[in-house]
Amino acid sequence: MPQALLNGLVSGLLIALPAIALSLTYGVLNFANFSIGAMITTGAYFAYLLNVGFGASILIAAPLAGLGLALVAVAIQRSVYRWVGSDHITLLVASMGVAFVLENTMRFIYGSDVRTLDVPVARPVQFYGLRLNHEQLTIAIVSLLSMAVVAIILKRTRLGRAMRAISDDAALADVRGIDRQRTVDWTWVIAGILSAFAGVLIGLDGTVEPLMGANYLISVFAAAIVGGIGNPFGAVAGAILIGLIEETSALAVSTSYRQGVSFLILVLVLLLRPQGMFGVARITR
């Protein structure tokens, strides 16, 4: 049981990265980005290309993959989302189309084969009878550092203030002279980097394949909604909760239904506390 809790905590920290990305784009752009799974996959393949294709160390490949995906995300914003209009349902459908394009482009280039990143194998760390393997340690460190950086950006920088202002009331932010386009672009940069990191971390712990991100889609959404969608700090708490429940539920239900557990949590939260754990109930249209 303590081992399951530890594993759950780590997998929660992993889910937290794309959950933050989802929450940020939801807050600033006001639509649910269904391509987040495909973004994770694309980021992982970028790292794979640099790491295995060009032989770069994963320490160089991962940040470059983050940068690459950030550029791709901004390009998609400028070429697709910006022109689709402001209706949040149409944007949502468009993001599904984007997911389809990204995922199948990766499949076109690399096929459906399962691939692994080239990293040295290390012994698991043992303490008090608990095992923590190297990949899990990396996940925890990278995830906590990224969260700290995002928190600083949100709370301490001009960009973060602009993001929070738009997410609070976009019209008011416009009136106050906040540059919406620029803020939106930077939001995609952050979302791209976080998704790519998540992709690399999933690839480190498992394999790189076209559906790797899509498999996390429901957990990521569940985390963001449980935490109160649009609230990045809530998303972290939601992600850890989802990770813990998914891992510990394996003790009770068959592992083949692990993904089904997030679905149940999602439905329960939507019915009982639709604003999420940390969301504030608001009258919205």
Binding site: A32, H88, L92, I218, A222, I225, L266, V267
Partner: peptide, 29 residues
């Protein structure tokens, strides 16, 4: 669709997607 109780349509999108994943799990297992 009862999950839309007081909710925005975005939530229905993810709920239905999760539902279809659930159906697939049941079909396979």
């Amino acid at each position: 669709s009862l999950a839309t109780l007081k909710l925005r349509e975005d939530y229905l999108a993810i709920t239905t997607l999760a539902f279809s994943e659930g159906v697939r799990l049941v079909l396979m297992n």
